[in-house]
Design a protein around this nucleic acid. Sequence first.
DNA 1: GTCTATAGGGGGATAGAC
DNA 2: GTCTATCCCCCTATAGAC
Lengths: 218, 218
Amino acid sequence: MTGSPVMNADRGERVPARAGTRKAEIVALASRMFREHGYHGVGMRALADAAGMQAASLYHHFRNKEELLLQTIYVVDRDMVVEQMPLLDGPGGHGERMARLVRAHVTHIGVNRDAWWVAGRELRALSPDRLEAVQGYRRQYQHRIARHLAEGVEAGEFDCPDPGLASLAILDLINGPNEWFDPSGRLTIDEIADRYADMVVRHLTPAVPSDGNGPTTR
Amino acid sequence: MTGSPVMNADRGERVPARAGTRKAEIVALASRMFREHGYHGVGMRALADAAGMQAASLYHHFRNKEELLLQTIYVVDRDMVVEQMPLLDGPGGHGERMARLVRAHVTHIGVNRDAWWVAGRELRALSPDRLEAVQGYRRQYQHRIARHLAEGVEAGEFDCPDPGLASLAILDLINGPNEWFDPSGRLTIDEIADRYADMVVRHLTPAVPSDGNGPTTR
DNA sequence: GTCTATAGGGGGATAGAC
DNA sequence: GTCTATCCCCCTATAGAC
């Protein structure tokens, strides 16, 4: 890990562009085009055209093309760690907190579709140290979930034989809508979020939660 | 749907290269390089270099670059429909058959890692009609799973309130190892396959399978 | 902050010899 | 079935005027 995500502010690389600025507009545009054609499928000229400027002008706002990619991916990974992850520290039982995280995670996919799509497919185009930083965020998120599962088992609220694998399985599940969610489909993203949260909690809850002896400590 | 996958044999586009041929070698090589650098990140010259030939020589074997991508993706989608899907028609209960499909699916990811990675990320580079054909296979696979779930509910073996959504959730789950499976990791692909199969069946099995009245018909 | 102009290289694909 | 040679286009990025 190379440090806080807010470092290197003067280099303009790890700090997200503030909403409403020209820079943020261009990042949103790039996200959409990267989503549609792939990072390598979008040239700086095409990007500049869509932004109504010349390719050279983009280099006033961004050091190079990769920084546009990083800004896109950052939208996803920053929120994952600074907004979703802390939900596991909130009030309520382990199931309740898990459900809150799942709902927030799935909803985030629905309202940041371009960025998620890109973050899921174009990591490979990042330079090695940037790639490592992003993967660090993801590991952090996954390990936090695994810890939550283990603690839920300890508290007698979860039945989960392998929290490490289960954390991967849960991430597989809740990242899924990134692949197929369609705003014009049968279910809204909120409905999907609710049902996935129920699925996860249901799966983690012991088959016979109350056998007359209350939660066991096994 | 445009027809049987074995059509267009004379155009050499939908039929997989037979194993052991020079063509198959090149496809495997392309899969690996597409995985490492992305479809747009690999040039015909780089590909030819790796194959020990000149770029122009590739055009003797393949009509164009996209055909190499199609051949790669075909490895995944053909097997999904012609090998995994029929497992749901085999002998045994609905849970047993579902477990068989999950194991085969996850195992397939483990032994065709390059092709899976590419099939998961580079669909967008296909021309519209090829894209539609591939997506048709996937819909077919998903719908077959949804039908299996509905039939399992009818048979009283599954508890599954929304087979359509559940089929997506199951696919999200069993496609997951494509993102993170590491042959040098803690678990082999067979172990992951077994545990994911257990997870799916456990999730589909009613919480109280035997309440003294046998399976209900609700 | 945006422009014109351009450097320097790589892209996919084809023609035609052998 | 593989080669050399080549076409024409697009790529990222920079220099320097305004």
